[in-house]
Structures are given as C-alpha cells and as structure tokens.
Design a protein around this nucleic acid. Structure first.
Lengths: 150, 150
DNA sequence: CCCCAAAATTAGAACCATTCTTTTTCTTGA
DNA sequence: TCAAGAAAAAGAATGGTTCTAATTTTGGGG
C-alpha cells in the first residue's frame, strides 16, 4: 500500500529528527488540540493522557518542538509564554488587555516578513511579528447584565 | 515674560500630575538621553547624577512615568524590558536576533493603530505593535576580518 | 514658615516563569 | 540484544520584577 495517508504524530517527530516518546507525542497533540495554552495547561493536558509528567519535561519537549518548527511560541509582553500548533503561515495575534485572551489573525499581506519596515536601518529583516492590543468581545461590552464572579 | 520656552523636565512631571523629585527628573532625562536602556542601565545613569538610588525606586519611577505616558516600555520576547522617551508617535522596533540591539522604525501607516487586522474577531483594537526580527548591520556581516572578543 | 497627609523611597523578602545540574530511564540503530 | 546517546526526573538555582512594611520627602494649607 502506498502510504500517502496523513502522517502520524510520531512520523512527524521522526521527520524532523526528534526521538519519538510518549511525552512528545502527547505534548504535540495537546498543543494542537488546545488554543494557545501555557506551560501549566499543557502539562495538565499531557498528564491527562500519561499520568505523571514533570514540568521540566514539558519545557524540554516544547523547546525541542519549537526548535524543530512543529510548534510556535508566543510571548505577549507581560504574560507567560503560550504555544500553538499553527506554524508556517506567518499569522499574527490579537491580545485582550483585560483578560489576556489570545486570538489568531491571518496575515493581511502575503508571506513573511509580511511587512516591510519604512527604514530598516540596515537590518536584515526576516520576520514581522504583529500584536494587536485591544479588548475581546467579552471584555469590551461594559457592565452587561449578567452574573459575574469577580 | 510669557514663558513659552520648552518646559523643563520638572514642569513635564507636574503637568502629568506627578510629584517632582530628583529621582524622577534624573530618571526621565536618563531614559531620554539613552537608547532603549534597561532597568540596570537606567539605575546606573541615575546614580551617576544622584549617587545612591535603589533599584526599586527606578522600577517605581518607571511605572509612574509609563503610566503617565512620558515613557514607553518595550519588552521584546526573551529579553528584559527596555525604555524609551519617544512616545505619542506609534512607532515600531527592529530587534537583532543575535545581539539584541533595538532600533526604532517609523510607522509606515499614519497613526495608531497603524494597522487594521484582516479579521478582528470582534476585538476592539487600539494599538498594533510590530516587531521586526532580523540581524543588525554588525551581526549580518559574517566573519568580518576584525578582532572580536566573541 | 511650619506641619501634615500623601506620595516617594528604601530594604528586604517574595514570586514566578524558566533554566541548570545531576542522575536515571528510555529510544534507537547496530 | 546491547550500547550510545537522548529524554525525563528531581531538585535546586536564577533573574527580572513585584510586594510589604517602615522611613523619608514633597508640597499645599494653616
């Protein structure tokens, strides 16, 4: 059979030269399933599948996955790092100033670096990272008549 | 005399409702004189003028100045915060992946939020922060025949 | 001009995300 | 199946930043 099926997570790991371990498979799938999760949340997700996993193992795994280009790290100023499985497309992010929620925005202008600096000062620019700051739909409606805890 | 001279630093502090202290005057002037300095460097600069000043005082002063809009905080992922005196214009930054050097870029498109997201997901966006990643002129020339101390 | 409330400063400890070190366990290719 | 090397565990350490409580300074009102 000509195996042209979508590759398994394990295959993907092997494909980028990483060893296949239960921890990494679970981690990668947790990142992809989740929506911009942080390290703690990812550790919880992995533990749900495997039982006990150390935080350091998660950090190490994330390092490897990010270095291999399978996972992208997002670090909005003022909050801990989050991770997403969408890589390759040079998309950007909306961050809510109030609750910290993160949303994806497609890149308006083609491919990376989707933006040219007006004067690059001699820099060799390879990526433009855009963060849109604002209020998410939930936080922008003030005093909605609804029970809230806080 | 109609005092239409450029206001003193002290006047500016008063103008935004901050108390005028030697520490804050020195801090604001150090930020403006410097080029994207970090907290330690700013503390050194202030100490050169005033003698002993605690790091916490610098943190506190920076908080106040940032909150008042006299100073802007920049926090490139992976490095400690830097501060600059250029505020009001919604300009962006070039960051060198190798040495971490930071340079200003004028905003290509008018005023904040100089960029509109292709789909804002219902967010109320008030600012677009752009970081151009690349290599600065010094770091992009490989193996220049010059003595370097790594 | 002096006093007082509010604000700034200090010293020191606490915090938290992340990294480092060392040892143990697991994956993989021979 | 074995050994080499990579990954994971455990625990401590790091570094930038913030918090707490006590002290000093600032600036307006008496």
């Amino acid at each position: 059979m000509t195996a042209s099926q979508s590759p398994t997570t394990a295959d993907e790991l092997r494909g980028v030269g990483l060893r296949v371990t239960a921890g990494r498979v679970a981690l990668l799938e947790t990142v992809r399933r989740g929506d911009h999760l942080g390290v703690e949340a990812l550790a919880s997700g992995v533990r749900e599948r495997l039982g006990q996993v150390s935080l350091q193992a998660v950090y190490e795994g994330l390092h490897a996955l990010v270095a291999a280009g399978l996972v992208r790290r997002i670090e909005p100023p003022g909050s801990p790092a989050r991770f997403e499985g969408r890589v390759g497309d040079n998309h950007h992010h909306l961050v809510c100033r109030s609750c910290g929620v993160l949303a994806d925005v497609d890149c308006a202008v083609g491919h990376a670096p989707c933006l040219a600096a007006s004067d690059d000062c001699g820099f060799t620019v390879d990526e433009a990272e855009v963060i849109y700051w604002g209020l998410c739909p939930d936080c922008s409606t003030p005093a909605v008549p609804e029970h809230r805890d806080h």
